[in-house]
Design a binder for these strands. Sequence first.
DNA 1: CATGGGATTGACT
DNA 2: GTCAATCCCATGC
Length: 192
Amino acid sequence: MRRAFYARPVLEVARDLVGCVVEHGGCAGVIVETEAYHDSEPACHAFVGLTPRTSTLFGPPGVAYVYRSYGIHALLNAVSEPAGIGAAVLIRALEPVAGVDAMFARRGVVRVEDLCSGPGKLTQALGIELTHNGTSLASGPIVFSPRPAAWRGVQVSVDRRVGITKAVELPWRFCAADSRFLSRRVRVARAA
DNA sequence: CATGGGATTGACT
DNA sequence: GTCAATCCCATGC
Protein backbone atom coordinates (compact mmCIF):
# COMPACT_ATOMS: atom_id res chain seq x y z
CA MET A 1 0.00 0.00 0.00
CA ARG A 2 1.07 3.59 -0.52
CA ARG A 3 1.74 6.18 2.13
CA ALA A 4 -1.80 7.62 1.96
CA PHE A 5 -3.21 4.34 3.29
CA TYR A 6 -1.33 4.85 6.56
CA ALA A 7 -1.82 8.63 6.81
CA ARG A 8 -5.27 8.15 8.35
CA PRO A 9 -6.66 7.70 11.86
CA VAL A 10 -4.79 4.74 13.36
CA LEU A 11 -8.01 2.91 14.27
CA GLU A 12 -9.05 2.86 10.61
CA VAL A 13 -5.61 1.70 9.53
CA ALA A 14 -5.59 -1.06 12.16
CA ARG A 15 -8.97 -2.36 11.04
CA ASP A 16 -8.13 -2.13 7.34
CA LEU A 17 -4.81 -3.94 7.74
CA VAL A 18 -6.64 -7.13 8.74
CA GLY A 19 -6.61 -9.31 5.60
CA CYS A 20 -3.60 -7.56 4.07
CA VAL A 21 -0.39 -9.43 3.26
CA VAL A 22 3.04 -9.10 4.89
CA GLU A 23 6.09 -10.38 3.02
CA HIS A 24 9.68 -10.74 4.13
CA GLY A 25 12.55 -13.19 3.92
CA GLY A 26 10.90 -15.42 1.33
CA CYS A 27 7.79 -15.76 3.49
CA ALA A 28 4.34 -14.21 3.47
CA GLY A 29 1.26 -14.21 5.67
CA VAL A 30 -2.16 -12.60 5.85
CA ILE A 31 -2.64 -10.28 8.83
CA VAL A 32 -5.32 -11.72 11.12
CA GLU A 33 -4.74 -9.61 14.25
CA THR A 34 -3.69 -5.97 14.88
CA GLU A 35 -3.70 -3.39 17.64
CA ALA A 36 -3.73 0.41 17.40
CA TYR A 37 -1.49 2.69 19.50
CA HIS A 38 -1.69 6.49 19.63
CA ASP A 39 0.35 9.13 21.47
CA SER A 40 -2.77 10.35 23.25
CA GLU A 41 -2.97 7.20 25.41
CA PRO A 42 -0.38 5.89 27.91
CA ALA A 43 0.01 2.38 26.48
CA CYS A 44 1.69 3.90 23.42
CA HIS A 45 5.46 4.32 23.45
CA ALA A 46 4.95 7.76 21.88
CA PHE A 47 3.00 8.91 24.97
CA VAL A 48 6.29 10.18 26.47
CA GLY A 49 6.85 12.46 23.48
CA LEU A 50 9.66 12.65 20.96
CA THR A 51 12.74 10.68 22.06
CA PRO A 52 15.33 8.67 20.12
CA ARG A 53 13.17 5.61 20.61
CA THR A 54 9.91 7.22 19.46
CA SER A 55 11.31 9.22 16.54
CA THR A 56 10.14 6.52 14.13
CA LEU A 57 6.59 6.73 15.51
CA PHE A 58 6.47 10.50 14.99
CA GLY A 59 7.99 10.24 11.51
CA PRO A 60 6.31 9.68 8.14
CA PRO A 61 3.61 6.97 7.87
CA GLY A 62 3.99 3.73 5.94
CA VAL A 63 7.24 2.88 7.73
CA ALA A 64 8.12 -0.08 9.97
CA TYR A 65 8.56 0.56 13.69
CA VAL A 66 10.41 -2.44 15.12
CA TYR A 67 11.46 -2.58 18.76
CA ARG A 68 12.68 -5.15 21.27
CA SER A 69 10.22 -6.40 23.82
CA TYR A 70 11.18 -8.10 27.09
CA GLY A 71 14.77 -8.17 25.93
CA ILE A 72 14.03 -11.02 23.56
CA HIS A 73 11.41 -10.41 20.92
CA ALA A 74 11.23 -8.00 17.99
CA LEU A 75 7.74 -6.56 17.48
CA LEU A 76 6.57 -5.15 14.13
CA ASN A 77 4.38 -2.07 13.77
CA ALA A 78 3.18 0.05 10.83
CA VAL A 79 3.63 3.77 11.53
CA SER A 80 0.34 5.55 10.91
CA GLU A 81 -1.25 9.03 10.89
CA PRO A 82 0.54 12.04 9.37
CA ALA A 83 4.11 12.85 10.45
CA GLY A 84 4.12 14.67 13.78
CA ILE A 85 1.57 12.31 15.30
CA GLY A 86 3.00 9.30 17.15
CA ALA A 87 0.85 6.34 16.16
CA ALA A 88 1.31 2.81 14.86
CA VAL A 89 -0.45 -0.50 14.28
CA LEU A 90 1.08 -3.53 16.01
CA ILE A 91 0.96 -6.65 13.84
CA ARG A 92 0.04 -9.43 16.30
CA ALA A 93 -0.65 -12.50 14.16
CA LEU A 94 -0.50 -13.83 10.59
CA GLU A 95 -2.01 -16.73 8.72
CA PRO A 96 1.00 -18.27 6.92
CA VAL A 97 0.55 -18.40 3.14
CA ALA A 98 4.01 -18.70 1.58
CA GLY A 99 7.48 -19.83 2.56
CA VAL A 100 6.07 -22.05 5.28
CA ASP A 101 9.14 -24.32 5.24
CA ALA A 102 11.39 -21.36 6.00
CA MET A 103 9.05 -20.34 8.82
CA PHE A 104 9.25 -23.80 10.40
CA ALA A 105 13.04 -23.69 10.10
CA ARG A 106 13.24 -20.31 11.86
CA ARG A 107 10.69 -21.17 14.55
CA GLY A 108 11.49 -24.78 15.38
CA VAL A 109 7.89 -25.74 16.02
CA VAL A 110 5.74 -28.49 14.54
CA ARG A 111 2.26 -26.99 14.26
CA VAL A 112 1.44 -24.41 11.59
CA GLU A 113 -0.72 -22.61 14.16
CA ASP A 114 2.41 -21.91 16.23
CA LEU A 115 4.34 -20.17 13.43
CA CYS A 116 2.89 -16.66 13.51
CA SER A 117 0.25 -16.63 16.27
CA GLY A 118 1.82 -13.82 18.28
CA PRO A 119 3.76 -10.60 17.67
CA GLY A 120 7.13 -12.08 18.67
CA LYS A 121 6.47 -15.33 16.81
CA LEU A 122 5.70 -13.75 13.45
CA THR A 123 8.85 -11.60 13.43
CA GLN A 124 10.92 -14.70 14.17
CA ALA A 125 9.09 -16.69 11.47
CA LEU A 126 9.70 -13.98 8.84
CA GLY A 127 13.22 -13.08 9.97
CA ILE A 128 12.33 -9.51 10.93
CA GLU A 129 14.95 -7.77 13.10
CA LEU A 130 15.49 -4.46 14.88
CA THR A 131 17.53 -3.28 11.91
CA HIS A 132 14.28 -3.03 9.94
CA ASN A 133 13.15 -0.14 12.12
CA GLY A 134 12.46 2.86 9.88
CA THR A 135 12.30 0.96 6.59
CA SER A 136 9.52 1.61 4.07
CA LEU A 137 6.60 -0.86 3.98
CA ALA A 138 6.08 -0.02 0.30
CA SER A 139 9.59 -0.60 -1.02
CA GLY A 140 10.76 -3.19 1.51
CA PRO A 141 12.53 -5.25 2.62
CA ILE A 142 9.30 -5.77 4.56
CA VAL A 143 6.41 -5.30 2.12
CA PHE A 144 2.73 -4.84 2.95
CA SER A 145 0.20 -5.37 0.16
CA PRO A 146 -3.60 -5.12 -0.15
CA ARG A 147 -6.14 -7.79 0.71
CA PRO A 148 -6.27 -10.72 -1.72
CA ALA A 149 -9.71 -11.21 -3.28
CA ALA A 150 -10.62 -13.97 -0.83
CA TRP A 151 -10.04 -11.57 2.08
CA ARG A 152 -11.87 -8.58 0.60
CA GLY A 153 -14.94 -8.98 2.77
CA VAL A 154 -13.28 -10.32 5.94
CA GLN A 155 -15.34 -10.03 9.13
CA VAL A 156 -13.40 -8.11 11.80
CA SER A 157 -13.93 -8.61 15.54
CA VAL A 158 -13.02 -5.92 18.08
CA ASP A 159 -11.51 -6.56 21.51
CA ARG A 160 -9.35 -4.99 24.20
CA ARG A 161 -5.58 -4.94 23.64
CA VAL A 162 -3.40 -7.74 24.98
CA GLY A 163 -0.52 -7.56 27.43
CA ILE A 164 -0.67 -3.91 28.44
CA THR A 165 -1.15 -2.36 31.87
CA LYS A 166 -2.36 1.12 30.89
CA ALA A 167 -5.48 2.16 28.97
CA VAL A 168 -6.56 -1.47 29.10
CA GLU A 169 -10.20 -0.58 28.51
CA LEU A 170 -9.78 0.73 24.96
CA PRO A 171 -11.27 -1.65 22.32
CA TRP A 172 -8.36 -1.20 19.94
CA ARG A 173 -7.61 -4.81 18.99
CA PHE A 174 -8.86 -6.04 15.60
CA CYS A 175 -9.07 -9.71 14.62
CA ALA A 176 -10.21 -11.70 11.61
CA ALA A 177 -13.29 -13.39 13.05
CA ASP A 178 -12.94 -17.17 13.46
CA SER A 179 -9.30 -17.27 12.39
CA ARG A 180 -7.38 -20.18 13.94
CA PHE A 181 -4.13 -18.21 13.78
CA LEU A 182 -4.84 -15.55 16.45
CA SER A 183 -2.52 -15.03 19.43
CA ARG A 184 -5.55 -15.56 21.68
CA ARG A 185 -9.25 -15.92 21.33
CA VAL A 186 -11.35 -12.79 21.14
CA ARG A 187 -13.00 -12.24 24.46
CA VAL A 188 -16.73 -12.30 23.92
CA ALA A 189 -18.38 -9.27 25.43
CA ARG A 190 -20.10 -10.17 28.66
CA ALA A 191 -23.67 -9.22 29.31
CA ALA A 192 -23.99 -6.11 31.47
C1' DC B 1 25.96 6.42 35.58
C1' DA B 2 22.24 3.12 37.94
C1' DT B 3 17.84 1.60 37.90
C1' DG B 4 13.44 -0.27 36.46
C1' DG B 5 9.97 -1.60 33.44
C1' DG B 6 8.07 -3.81 29.74
C1' DA B 7 2.81 -4.01 23.21
C1' DT B 8 6.17 -11.90 25.06
C1' DT B 9 7.17 -16.56 24.93
C1' DG B 10 8.07 -21.19 26.37
C1' DA B 11 9.04 -24.25 30.07
C1' DC B 12 7.44 -25.95 34.14
C1' DT B 13 4.13 -27.08 38.63
C1' DG C 1 -1.83 -21.72 36.79
C1' DT C 2 3.48 -19.50 37.74
C1' DC C 3 7.86 -17.62 36.29
C1' DA C 4 12.47 -16.43 34.24
C1' DA C 5 15.00 -14.89 30.19
C1' DT C 6 17.27 -10.60 28.49
C1' DC C 7 18.10 -5.81 26.29
C1' DC C 8 16.73 -1.29 25.03
C1' DC C 9 15.76 3.01 26.59
C1' DA C 10 13.48 6.61 29.63
C1' DT C 11 14.15 8.53 33.84
C1' DG C 12 16.46 10.24 37.90
C1' DC C 13 20.46 11.07 40.72
